[in-house]
Design a protein around this nucleic acid. Structure first.
Length: 573
DNA sequence: GCCGTTTTCGGCCCGACTGTTTTCAGTCG
């Protein structure tokens, strides 16, 4: 069984945590954490790289010794040094470190003084009020730990971006209405448009006498006030979302915006460039010899280190700094570049609205074209179309196109099922009458990596195959991606003149950011599609755009930025 | 443990808040 990058990253993270608890050198610990981050963010399989004899030291934060360890992990599934650490420190201690308020020192104290090795032990120790007697702990700490532990049990997942927006928008409106509040930005992964958000980091500037800090903790949705100072406060909302508010001087707003937008790895890289130039960069500004020289805008920060502005979606330390230095930052795609939608359903199958209503909704968004891609017959639960019903729909599309009089052009399409043997579930005769065919895996998610890959590649051999829909099949927080050699699938798509979808449904966002970027680099074209089941669903497009931007996509990488003529040329194979 | 057109040794981001201290350690972001 080949080991996944995620598992390698987990081992390295656990190594870092146990070293931390063991009191090892802080920079050695960080080296493991950085290497784990590199491994976790990689799209192509490290196991495959190792087998191909690739030089792993080319990866950021991976040196000779780390490369050797990763090789050993790939070969044996284990890490000797970690095994040795685990003789004295239970692996579960690493999980205790995830609990907010517990770091390496306290975890070690709990382990040594109370024999607490995991969350269940901790819960018992807290209930017996034995924690407050451990040196460095007290009654208050015991209380907060009890709350955090209970909280964690009911809410441990990151929040999808769309939900985060629904929580953030009313809070932002509430804060903006407080006396004296001037500027407000939600920073952090929210601003980087990451597919899920851990917590909200809100930055405000305000008049000196503004009651914003007090008003924040009084917000009606606040469940618990975690901390409450003059310039910084943290609350837990009743939804389970943690929110940090920071009050900043106007002059420092740009520097703070940069600092709190992150990512942490990006910030460290920028600060290091600052240090090389004799500058200190923190959330209050850019300093030379303790003298503040700028920091009112984010551009000030980038100016200080000689870089052009880097869009928040790119700030993940995935090469954006090198690209900025070389003047090769992408011109990221924007919502306004989108010219149509290539995946939508009507009430003929599992959509909620008529063909005409969908056409009108798409036209209202200024689109030049909309592909109607109802389900095919294999998806019986969705009342999938057989050849006869599809033929009827095609006639209806013709009639409607006439009535629409050029306001928008409906494309004849279908969402085909890729069957287990790699065939498509409608005959070629009817498929040849269509403008495009979107093809999906909707069942048999548990095939082996080899079989799933072959299944899709075989389907692409059919010359009617145009776009592979939601290529990984994952549902955020609900269903992991099926096992697939995505690199081979992309390669196969490029060879055959097929394309891949970035499905914009907020719970799919599939392809993800890293995979979108890999597809781009391999020369694939991507359709950003909403998979709309109602007219309102066309608004999901913005989430697809966010993910695409995080994947470094430019208008030229995307199918549905094209004019109708260009699109039709690209769909020919 | 990583990294390097100043360096193969000696650096590695840094400030706010809390609770337990009695001047500061631990944690977080």
């Amino acid at each position: 069984m080949t080991i996944h990058n995620r598992e390698i990253a987990d081992l390295l993270h656990r190594m870092a945590d146990l070293l931390d608890i063991d009191g090892a050198d802080a920079f050695r610990i960080r080296a493991y954490r950085q290497a784990a981050q590199t491994v976790g963010g990689l799209s192509e399989s490290l196991a495959d790289r190792v087998q191909a004899g690739a030089d792993l030291t080319e990866l950021p934060h991976v040196g000779e010794r780390m490369a050797e360890k990763i090789k050993r992990i790939v070969e044996t599934g284990r890490l000797d040094q970690l095994d040795r650490l685990e003789e004295d420190l239970p692996a579960e201690l690493s999980e205790l470190m995830q609990i907010s308020g517990l770091g390496p020192k306290r975890v070690k104290a709990l382990h040594q003084d109370l024999g607490v090795d995991n969350a269940a032990d901790l819960k018992r120790a807290l209930e017996a009020h034995r924690v407050q007697d451990v040196s460095g702990f007290g009654k208050k700490t015991e209380q907060t730990l009890s709350e955090r532990l209970a909280d964690r049990e009911q809410h441990e997942k990151r929040t999808p971006l769309m939900e985060a927006e629904e929580i953030a928008a009313p809070l932002a409106r509430y804060l903006e209405d407080i006396d004296g509040v001037r500027a407000l930005t939600i920073a952090g992964s929210y601003r980087r448009r990451k597919e899920t958000v851990g917590d909200l980091d809100i930055l405000v500037t305000a008049e000196d006498d503004s009651p914003v800090m007090d008003a924040f903790v009084d917000y009606e949705e606040v469940g618990e006030v975690v901390s409450h100072g003059d310039t910084r406060a943290t609350v837990m909302l009743r939804s389970g979302m943690q929110v940090d508010l920071r009050l900043l001087p106007q002059a420092a707003y740009g520097a703070a915006l940069h600092y709190f937008t992150g990512s942490k790895a990006h910030n460290i890289a920028v600060r290091r460039m600052g240090v090389e130039r004799g500058l200190k960069i923190n959330e209050y500004g850019v300093f030379r010899d303790d003298e503040r020289i700028s920091g009112g805008s984010e551009q000030d920060v980038y100016d200080a280190v000689g870089l052009p502005f880097i869009e928040p979606e790119l700030r993940e330390d995935r090469g954006e700094i090198d690209a900025a230095e070389a003047g090769r930052l992408p011109r990221l795609i924007a919502l306004s570049d989108i010219n149509g939608d290539l995946h939508s359903h009507t009430d003929a199958t599992d959509g909620n609205e008529s063909l005409e209503a969908m056409a009108e909704a798409a036209a209202a968004r200024g689109y030049a074209y909309l592909a109607i891609t109802d389900h095919s017959r294999h998806v019986t639960v969705a009342n999938g179309l057989d050849p006869e019903r599809l033929a009827e729909q095609l006639d209806e599309v013709d009639r409607l196109n006439d009535r629409l009089d050029g306001r928008i052009r409906l494309l004849k399409g279908i969402e085909l099922d890729i069957l287990e043997d790699g065939s498509l579930d409608l005959p070629d005769e009817i498929l040849s009458r269509l403008d495009l065919r979107v093809c999906s895996v909707h069942y048999k998610f548990d095939l082996s990596r080899e079989k799933q890959t072959e299944r899709i590649l075989k389907a692409m051999d059919n010359r009617h195959f145009n776009i592979l829909a939601h290529p990984s099949g994952r549902l955020i927080n609900e269903r992991p991606p099926y096992d697939l050699d995505l690199e081979r699938v992309i390669e196969g798509a490029v060879e055959r003149g097929c394309h891949l979808e970035l499905n914009a449904q907020p719970w799919r966002l599939d392809l993800n950011d890293a995979d979108s970027r890999m597809a781009k680099q391999m020369g694939a074209k991507i359709a950003i599609s909403t998979d709309a089941h109602s007219g309102a669903n066309f608004d999901y497009m913005r989430f697809g755009i966010f993910q695409a931007r995080r994947g470094w996509l430019e208008p030229d990488d995307v199918l549905n930025t094209r004019s109708l003529d260009e699109l039709q040329a690209l769909l020919k194979r």
